[in-house]
Simulated assay, not measured.
Amino acid sequence: MSIYTAIATAAGRDGRAVSSDGRLDVNLALQKELGGDGEGTNPEQLFAAGYAACFASAMRLVAAQQELDVADAAVTAEVGLSPNGKGGFQLSVTLRAELPDHIGPEAGQALLEATHQVCPYSNATRGNIPVELVIE
């Protein structure tokens, strides 16, 4: 049983994507790199924004459990799109976390690994696409 269900409708990479509650209403456009005009957002940008936000929230939860202060932390998600060699495409993700200076490299890496086990996006992508965790 879901505690929340998001609903959005789109007709493709060119046009609009709209959520059922109307809070999300964006113009979509095929990227210039794929032959489009790039005059709108695209699924990879939306995925990157969602993954970064979700991972940052999960990191705050895990950090609180570990008694770490990550109030000033930020996460940037880089979502790559590339041919899969079978006529289709595949995604890859690099998550770049900017952590406060008081969190050392070992504690930071442990925090990212623990967060990767909690984040719903990480759980959905695990084993399906490569995800790299990087401390900035």
Rank of each mutant, 00 (worst) to 15 (best):
D69N: 04
G12I: 15
L111D: 04
I103C: 00
G104Y: 02
A74I: 12
Q31W: 03
A124I: 15
D69H: 01
D72E: 05
E113P: 01
D21G: 05
R13G: 02
A77P: 06
P105A: 08
G50T: 13
L28W: 06
M1E: 09
A8V: 14
L24I: 13
P120G: 05
V93Q: 04
E78Q: 03
E113R: 12
N128R: 12
E113Y: 07
D14W: 06
A77Q: 07
E113A: 11
G88D: 09
G35H: 04
E44C: 04
E67P: 09
A77L: 10
P120A: 10
Q66L: 10
L133T: 11
G36I: 14
Y121F: 12
C54L: 02
L95C: 08
S82G: 06
G12Y: 12
H102F: 03
L46D: 09
S82Y: 10
P83D: 06
A11F: 08
V18I: 15
V93T: 15
N128W: 07
G85E: 13
I135M: 05
D25E: 14
A63R: 01
T41Y: 07
G40L: 06
A17V: 15
R60K: 13
L61P: 01
G108M: 13
R13Q: 05
V18E: 14
T9W: 04
E78P: 02
M59F: 01
A63W: 00
G40F: 07
P43N: 02
L34V: 12
S20P: 06
Y121Q: 01
L24Y: 09
A29L: 09
A97G: 01
R60G: 13
L30Y: 09
A56L: 11
L91V: 10
V70H: 00
L34K: 04
V134K: 11
I135L: 07
Q45H: 02
L28C: 13
A11H: 11
A48N: 02
F89R: 04
Q66R: 11
I3L: 06
Q65M: 10
L34N: 07
D69F: 00
A17N: 03
A77N: 10
H102E: 03
H102V: 02
G35F: 04
L24R: 02
E113V: 15
L34M: 09
V118W: 00
Y51W: 14
C119K: 09
D69E: 03
E136K: 05
L95M: 08
A8S: 12
K86Y: 13
R16H: 13
V131K: 00
L133F: 11
A73R: 05
S57E: 07
P43I: 08
A52Q: 10
M1A: 12
E113M: 04
S20D: 13
A17W: 08
L91C: 08
R13A: 08
S122N: 08
S92C: 07
A97Y: 04
H102T: 10
V62N: 00
Q66T: 11
I103W: 00
R23S: 14
